[in-house]
Computed example of a mutant assay.
Amino acid sequence: MTAHLITGAGSGIGAAVVDRLAERGDELWLLARDAGRAKELESRFPGARTVVGDLATPEKLSWALSHQALPDRLDSLVHSAGVVDLGSIADLTPKTWNAQLAANLVAPAELTRLLLPQLRAARGQVVFVNSGAGLRTNPQWGAYAASKHGLRALADALRAEEHDNGVRVTSVYPGRTSTPMQAKVHQQEGKEYEEARWMDPASVARTVLTALDLPRDAEITDLSVRPGA
């Protein structure tokens, strides 16, 4: 059975990816920030297994994972968790910078490092659900975009380093998507949130599965998806 570990499974794109993988009966491992969140995920996705680890503190992930059961092999690791906090460079504090860099960049790097043996064993794939902010930067988005630009660099380096081990690496760059994070962004921007204007998370999930299901003789490296007309 194909095995996947997904972060950010509680909502948005991550939840949509889990829904699609569950529909076809794949083995699911979901990262939860704490035991309470793990119970919520297990209730929402019957049959899925959970691993507890807080992406806000990547330096503790090694200890946390070493005390839990993990899969012997992983066909994919899908990074879809993330945090956002807008603000001008003049106003952003080190605490705000560090929180976004930790969850959006350092934690994915560390979680990938810890699970590389399982990914190599399966000749699996790492998917980074990045953002349009990983390709361009707008005012007020400096810290978030920096973390996402860094995530792109992480993916590019990992792809080159793990090619000979058979591990594929894909970056997906969604435009604005109807998620709780998007609602928060609109609130920070002082704009009215109109959910119907933006992409359905299920549409982005389909792009993720397209990359995962590609035959082994090919690899999608970078894929942008934007709201339609």
Results as ranks from 00 to 15, higher is better:
84 V>T: 06
42 E>L: 01
23 E>M: 01
23 E>F: 01
129 V>S: 04
157 A>W: 11
184 K>S: 05
14 G>E: 04
73 R>K: 15
101 L>P: 06
112 T>F: 12
149 H>T: 03
115 L>F: 07
226 R>H: 06
203 S>C: 08
137 T>M: 03
220 I>Q: 09
50 T>Q: 05
217 D>N: 13
77 L>Y: 02
138 N>M: 10
33 R>D: 00
131 S>W: 02
115 L>W: 13
113 R>S: 03
79 H>M: 00
221 T>D: 05
166 G>K: 08
215 P>N: 08
107 A>I: 05
91 D>H: 15
146 A>Q: 15
227 P>E: 07
191 K>N: 10
5 L>G: 01
117 P>F: 06
47 G>P: 00
189 E>G: 06
7 T>D: 08
37 R>Q: 12
146 A>C: 14
122 A>R: 06
51 V>G: 02
186 H>F: 13
14 G>D: 08
175 G>H: 12
115 L>H: 11
203 S>K: 15
40 E>D: 14
202 A>G: 05
176 R>C: 10
78 V>E: 00
220 I>G: 12
195 E>P: 07
62 S>E: 11
28 L>P: 08
108 P>F: 13
25 G>I: 00
15 A>M: 12
94 P>F: 12
176 R>M: 13
55 L>E: 11
102 A>W: 15
113 R>I: 02
136 R>E: 06
194 E>C: 09
42 E>V: 01
123 R>E: 12
214 L>Q: 14
72 D>Y: 11
139 P>M: 07
164 D>R: 03
200 D>K: 15
42 E>Q: 12
4 H>A: 02
179 T>Q: 05
6 I>S: 07
15 A>S: 14
193 Y>P: 01
40 E>M: 08
62 S>Y: 04
22 A>N: 14
25 G>F: 03
166 G>I: 03
223 L>D: 09
31 L>S: 07
149 H>Y: 05
50 T>L: 02
91 D>N: 07
70 L>P: 02
196 A>Y: 15
226 R>G: 05
222 D>N: 02
94 P>I: 13
148 K>F: 01
12 G>A: 10
11 S>Y: 13
141 W>D: 08
103 A>Y: 10
53 G>A: 05
145 A>T: 00
61 L>G: 00
38 A>Q: 00
174 P>K: 08
64 A>F: 03
196 A>W: 15
119 L>S: 08
113 R>H: 06
168 R>S: 12
102 A>E: 15
164 D>G: 05
193 Y>C: 01
162 E>Y: 11
183 A>Q: 06
46 P>H: 12
178 S>Y: 09
124 G>C: 06
32 A>D: 03
18 V>Q: 07
16 A>R: 04
120 R>S: 11
105 L>C: 06
69 A>H: 09
83 V>I: 14
194 E>K: 14
220 I>A: 11
198 W>L: 09
157 A>Y: 09
210 T>D: 12
115 L>I: 00
67 H>E: 14
184 K>V: 03
215 P>T: 05
171 S>H: 05
12 G>R: 13
48 A>P: 03
204 V>S: 03
37 R>P: 04
18 V>T: 03
80 S>R: 10
158 L>R: 13
24 R>I: 02
73 R>N: 12
225 V>A: 03
104 N>F: 06
75 D>A: 04
218 A>G: 04
182 Q>A: 00
72 D>R: 14
215 P>V: 03
22 A>R: 14
188 Q>G: 00
212 L>Y: 10
92 L>N: 14
24 R>D: 05
139 P>T: 02
102 A>Q: 15
